[in-house]
Amino acid sequence: MRLRAGACAALASVLLATGCATPASQRTEVVVYAAASLNSVFTRLGTEFEASHPGLSVKFSFDGSATLLDQLSAGAPADVLATADEPTMAKAVTAHLIGGAPTVFATNVLTMIVPAGNPAGITGLDRSLEGRKLVVCADGVPCGSATRKLAGLLGVTLHPVSEETKVTDVRAKVETGQADAGIVYVTDARASGDAVESIPIAHADQARNDYLIAVPTSATQPVAAAQFIEFVTGSSGRTALADAGFGG
């Protein structure tokens, strides 16, 4: 709230307080359903969007891509849908839940993480993992499908001790040192900060996840939704996404 007030104050001096003076009730609200991995970067973009678009406000719902799709098909009031993979968006298109063509706005690749200090002496997807505790995402969820694809490309067989449903659960198990190593997105590795160390995986770019964004057919604010998508795919969006570790 303080950040927003600050942004408003700064903007007010430039824009003669047009937007910031608008009471919340008179603002057009864009409801954005976005993949959980977009949480911090979209929250930041939402604040910037509101500051540069007087009269518009953004509300987010973050969850796993498949859950978002379930909610949308059950009639959730979303104006924007952003998924962490292509298959989920394709399902939404097939189910006639999406109007226009979805846009790829970011990509994410996998990396290996180990707890700070690398106590188990892991060197990569190699023999150093033998007898060690590796945690990955379960096949079927986006990060797990990418992990399976990458392991296939590299010709390695993984023997994880746990296959998590959410990439953040993999992260948490490495951060706490329960696991010796985990495979997560580079954006998760960056979000973990000093708690983990990254070990890049060769050819990770060949098992890339595409993030797609689109306006659902049921959107009540399609014009404002298009403005938000324009903002995310524009220069502000690209900067914020790159800061968080996403690829263009």
Binding site: A66, T67, D70, V135, A138, G140, V141, P160, V161, S162, E163, E164, T165, K173, Q178
Partner: peptide, 18 residues
């Protein structure tokens, strides 16, 4: 954790299948 046959009990399998 969650691994088939070792730690993935019925509620965890439901959570994954969802």
């Amino acid at each position: 954790g969650s691994l088939q046959g070792t730690t993935r009990t019925l509620p965890l399998e439901i959570y994954l299948q969802r």
